[in-house]
Design a protein around this nucleic acid. Sequence first.
DNA 1: TAAATGTTAGTAAACGTTTACTATAAGGAG
DNA 2: CTCCTTATAGTAAACGTTTACTAACATTTA
Lengths: 338, 338
Amino acid sequence: MDKKATINDVAKVANVSIATVSRYLSNNGYPIKEQTKISIKNAIEQLSYTPNIVGRMLKTNKSMDIGVIIPTILNPYYPAVIYGIEKKAYEKGFNILLCNSQRDASRQKQYVNTLIQKQVKGLIISSIGDDFLLYSDIVSKGIALVSLEDEISLDKVGQVLFNYEKGAYMAVSHLLKLGHKKIAFLTSPLVRKSRKDILKGYIKCLKDNNITYNKVVEINEENEYENGALLGAKLLSEDDLPTALLAVNDMVAYGVMQYLTQNNINIPEDISIVGFDDIKISKMMNPALTTISQPSQKTGELAVSMLFDILDGKESKRILLEPELVIRASTKKIRGEI
Amino acid sequence: MDKKATINDVAKVANVSIATVSRYLSNNGYPIKEQTKISIKNAIEQLSYTPNIVGRMLKTNKSMDIGVIIPTILNPYYPAVIYGIEKKAYEKGFNILLCNSQRDASRQKQYVNTLIQKQVKGLIISSIGDDFLLYSDIVSKGIALVSLEDEISLDKVGQVLFNYEKGAYMAVSHLLKLGHKKIAFLTSPLVRKSRKDILKGYIKCLKDNNITYNKVVEINEENEYENGALLGAKLLSEDDLPTALLAVNDMVAYGVMQYLTQNNINIPEDISIVGFDDIKISKMMNPALTTISQPSQKTGELAVSMLFDILDGKESKRILLEPELVIRASTKKIRGEI
DNA sequence: TAAATGTTAGTAAACGTTTACTATAAGGAG
DNA sequence: CTCCTTATAGTAAACGTTTACTAACATTTA
């Protein structure tokens, strides 16, 4: 708990200059006598000296941190993304500053500011909304920026996107093929572009198949866990029940499933349901959830690679990941069809 | 992308000294003329200046980061803990450096080193194992340390513990009350103290109730998601099947449930199962999982409070959280009993 | 009116590093 | 024996802040 040892202390004990100690530590080919090396090594041990990265950072301006801003860590989709990010970042010796915006724009802005001030090398953000000024501010500070999911109309920004519209289209197609004609879309607030795209895909597929029935059930709450019950209740309160559902994400789907089951509606016998994301547990649910797979871990890994590419001065890219339909037990042919 | 503006640039533009700018920024009662304030404000805007926290940190030695090391982010228990940590930390203006040890001791050690070098103010760790040296190293560097789940025999370390043994005892009691006499314990490698404690509770409860049947099914894999199938297979490969199961955590329970269901064993009709953790989705499973509730978010919040207490020089505490049995649908009276 | 006080601002020394220069000694080339 | 090179090490100036001193006024106070 005493004062931490610095490079000066080490130099004094080893009876060399701080430059030599610094060189010893940086371990770049600079030649140092074996003798000297040993005494420095001993001094370091004796003082249990640890380099102060803050000092180094100030001098070299080489931060080894990347900021990560996500809307919520409670939807397992994001931990999976973070897993990918952390994995790749660790390989490069980078650390992650994790920020949870809680889907709150001012909180997100505050986090961005802090991260800039902390001199992060890069920033990966799954943003609440399209805040052009925020992004350009980051970029103009020389910080590599990668956006997840939401499209940003700005140069020099890496983007790992997902074809939400197509995903929704595939989901609805699947339900139509099973004979469903009354398909509802259950969703959290339609604020993010990704969600709006899902809506688009849903509408488009219905239109393309000349289905007139459509029902969008939206609620104001952001908390996905509790949304299920709310959405379920709202759904059941109306007449003309659908026979199939598309949920904006898997978590919402679970909530709805649970609510419906509790209200004696069987899945998939009475109502089929398709989720969105394919988080790990979706295959463990009973019934296992049919869903649109979005490669979360890969998204994280790609984001980091892209970030390093930008830092290396390469042209910033834009990747559009394609959805995949994973058919499990929560969807089946409509009653009466063979 | 030009050179970032510094406090010197601001001072020059505003035509004042850097000291004045610094005072303006720190916004502590130091009196500054309105006139001066305005010109500084303008200069800052004009240059779109952002303070460099690294410079500040070096001078003040006041880091606003806390390191968090967890074994895996893929088990939703940890994101919930992180949620609690982040929430509390944000209130105090602290940021989180998230590290995923992947249950790998050397990786954990490396992360600890990096965090020390980054001058984190505190460190919250859910550790792989009991590495006394590692801990004392941290403490001796003046970094506040809080350990989650695992007990550390070291002064000055905050500890948020959980009564695993009692939890297991309660789980087994519950199963016994339902008439089960053949209860197996399914677990990932018994390396962490927490897991060993669960085993203890399991054994003790059986002994207290004069039950001789016991079966511990352990596998070497750490990946909880895939464990289920492995454990399930191992279980079914033996004769004398149990009628009830205790899983080391909810994720393992899901895996097992899924495997058993696929092999035409119904839960809870054929086999009852109790999990451990009560992660959010456990109530959304179908059947919903009976489990021992471990307050994840609260654990995170307590850890941060404790950390700040230590930083404030208060006596470091040790909190033992008590388990709670949450009865849901995955357990029922043994076949034949009324 | 002189001294004391309050307001406002500047100077310069840290904080712990890295690194461009510079310096010394030793060994080879001519 | 001079001159070059190579191996090794030191000096000191940065990096962007904060802050203890000091300074210059203006305003009270006695």
